[in-house]
């Protein structure tokens, strides 16, 4: 398998990516992995080995919850959705990320 940047690289980045993906409506684990891959145009690939432990961790923190639903192919699937606390957390993490990336960019762009 080709090497992709691992979203786990920066601690907490994966959580933020998952929260953001779940924020746009109920979605199952497979869907989350696919959407992250599509939107980042294959730059970020979330492996199952990181995705599911992260989902269970976020659920424990009550940032996401789930319901069982029927998927596009007619199978029963676990659909995750953002909770109120999750929405707050996503806002905080997005803000932190903006500050961090702006700072890093600024540093990199100095000549």
């Amino acid at each position: 398998m080709p090497k992709y940047p691992d979203p786990d690289m920066l601690q907490g980045t994966l959580d933020m990516l998952i929260l953001k993906t779940v924020a746009s409506g109920p979605i199952h684990g497979y869907g989350i992995a696919m959407r992250i891959q599509q939107i980042t145009q294959d730059v970020l690939r979330v492996r199952q080995g990181s995705l599911y432990p992260a989902l269970y961790r976020l659920e424990r923190k009550r940032w996401i919850d789930y319901d069982w639903g029927t998927s596009e192919n007619g199978r029963r699937a676990k659909y995750y959705r953002l909770t109120k606390q999750g929405r707050k957390q996503l806002a905080t993490e997005t803000e932190n990320w903006d500050r961090l990336s702006t700072a890093v960019n600024r540093l990199l762009q100095t000549t």
Binding site: H28, G29, Y30, Q48, Y52, W68, S71, N73, R75, R76, A77, K78
Partner: peptide, 14 residues
């Protein structure tokens, strides 16, 4: 049980 079903779903999609 839910964990099993969730992983099986992912596998079937793959």
């Amino acid at each position: 049980y839910e964990m099993d079903e969730e992983m099986m779903f992912h596998l079937s999609r793959l």
